[in-house]
Design a protein around this nucleic acid. Structure first.
Length: 414
DNA sequence: GAACCACACGATAAGATTTT
DNA sequence: AAAATCTTATCGTGTGGTTC
């Protein structure tokens, strides 16, 4: 294959030609770009240069005395260093809040793959006297390399990275952006907490949706005015790049900043709930149920029982109440409190609800095997059959009748 | 010893949800 | 529209105990 070297040389030449063409295109773009009009008026900030070019950065600070909804910003700096230690992916060391970085991006779309890029990357940081947001913006696609470079530098000291759905959206997207500009993604070694899943565990049953903006209003009590909806953001950016008019970028930066502040405040809330198993932080009955289910699933049955009982004590909406009583009974049994379970089954069997029939069956088992009271077992079996008969129940009835007959007990007919 | 019952545990699959 | 979880339900399978 004498041509191999020639082929390699040919490919090399083609590749570098392509790279030259891409660079030239970038250069030309830079020249052709309409000068951004009023960007620094719409978004206070400045042009920043890096070894990879230039981009635009904006820094804003929230004083510790400010509130975000009902959340005091100064609480952030007071959070314990080990707050996130147990709940990140990739063992986070105990690290003070000042070393956590909250990340959120605004992108040119929702589609994954390589066609989407993050034109705005916002990083939030807890400071001694408040909360600081740094936003890295590409005024045009030719500024991406510089923007990514600056973000890498800003992440250098981060001990924990916090996002909302970042595990499946922001981080993979940024990773491909770094690779596209022939750079290594800076996330590899940073322990990552995706708050979405913890938030869902807590509020799934209380709220219809666990989107970040929903938690912001429902949990933090913050109302946004003039917020730009997420789905309009890609178009706003394309318009800016095409026309250079910065009018719509102000709301986009604000949207990004608010997402980051909310993310930070919610991190404090979610992590605190998990820290004490939910007892001190929770208020709503549905939250107790959700946390109880999680504790049960994690094998912490004693705590799960405690939260289920608390949920039932509070005003639990009906669709959750009966299901929770049913689950609570199962836990009582596992924790060797069969009497508590039976009393719950009796309640469930005495009023119309989704578990009424199953509760009757549990009572039938109880009376057959524990109390050895065959007439009672038979009675509950028949009650259950009256609600809905099936082969299992008929077999149960036959067995009970046979045993009752064999024992010489008075034969019962139904 | 055979048949049955109740229960615990683990694997697995399906479905739902979030991000711009 | 793409990808990554998390929940929940649903199966087997093994165990221990009881009844005939």
């Amino acid at each position: 294959m004498p041509d191999l070297e020639a082929q390699i040389a040919y490919l090399r030449e083609r590749m570098s030609a392509a790279a030259r063409r891409a660079d030239a295109e970038m250069q030309e773009r830079r020249m052709r770009r309409p000068p951004p009009q009023g960007l620094s008026l719409a978004v206070p900030g400045r042009e920043v240069g890096t070894p990879a070019g230039v981009h635009y950065e904006s820094v804003s600070v929230m004083e510790g005395s400010r509130r975000h909804g009902n959340f005091e910003i100064s609480r952030l700096a007071a959070l314990p260093p080990d707050l996130l230690a147990g709940i990140t992916e990739g063992e986070a060391p105990a690290a003070p809040p000042e070393t956590w970085v909250f990340l959120d991006t605004e992108t040119t779309g929702l589609a994954g793959g390589s066609g989407t890029c993050a034109f705005l990357i916002g990083l939030g940081r807890v400071t001694a006297d408040g909360f600081e947001i740094r936003q890295f913006f590409m005024r045009d696609f030719c500024e991406e390399a510089s923007q990514l470079h600056a973000v890498r530098e800003a992440l250098a000291e981060a001990q924990v990275l916090v996002t909302y759905n970042g595990k499946s959206f922001d981080i993979p997207l940024l990773e491909t952006r770094y690779r596209m500009s022939r750079a290594r993604p800076p996330f590899g070694s940073i322990p990552h907490l995706d708050l979405l899943f913890g938030a869902r565990r807590i509020w799934r049953l209380r709220l219809d949706s666990c989107r970040l903006t929903e938690l912001e209003t429902q949990i933090l009590g913050h109302e946004r005015d003039d917020d730009i909806p997420g789905e309009l953001i890609p178009k706003a950016y394309f318009d800016f790049v095409r026309t250079g008019r910065a009018g719509k970028m102000g709301p986009v930066f604000l949207h990004n900043a608010l997402d980051i502040v909310s993310l930070a405040c919610l991190t404090a809330v979610v992590a605190s709930v998990f820290r004490d198993g939910g007892r001190a932080e929770l208020r709503h009955a549905a939250e107790f149920v959700a946390m109880g289910r999680w504790l049960r699933q994690a094998g912490r049955l004693g705590e799960a029982r405690e939260l289920f009982r608390e949920a039932v004590r509070r005003n639990l909406r009906e669709d959750l109440l009966f299901r929770t009583l049913w689950d609570l009974a199962a836990i009582e049994r596992k924790l060797h409190a069969p009497d508590a379970a039976v009393s719950i089954y009796a309640d469930l069997a005495s009023c119309p609800n989704a578990h009424r029939r199953d509760a009757m069956i549990e009572l039938a088992k109880h009376y057959e095997h524990r109390e050895r009271n065959l007439p009672m077992a038979l009675a509950f079996t028949e009650e259950a059959r009256a609600l809905a008969d099936d082969a299992d129940l008929r077999r149960r009835r036959e067995r009970l009748l046979a045993r009752a007959g064999q024992n010489g007990a008075p034969r019962l007919e139904f």
